[in-house]
Amino acid sequence: MILDLYNYWVVIALMMVGFYSVIVRGNLIKKLIGLNIFQTSVFIFYISVGKVDGGTAPILVDGVTLYSNPLPHVLILTAIVVGIATLALALALVVRIKDAYGTVEEEEIREIDEQ
């Protein structure tokens, strides 16, 4: 039972490390790295769902009958693209924030805004 699911649990731990970094870190870039880890871990979770014991990669070859599930792969390909797109936009924002505020630390930005 536990061995059946250990994969998922490690992945959950990964997600949470990323999630924690997003919430708790004050540096905008660090937050984004956390977000990145969070998302990547969700990708691992999906791909784990598609794993079939004894199967091979879903590229049709004569004589092979057991393949891993291709659908999660497709979904995650899309999700990876979405992830990098979000990251690019976020980093562009960070660059502009640095220009406008002179810092990329959340606390300092808040202080400047309150003045």
Partner: peptide, 28 residues
Amino acid sequence: DAVDVAFTEAAVGAGISPLLFLSVLKLT
């Protein structure tokens, strides 16, 4: 067995995204 995903993740996770991060770090 997710070779396509692995290919993409290698290109993005180990390629493009560190590159973008680094070019921003240079500024921030």
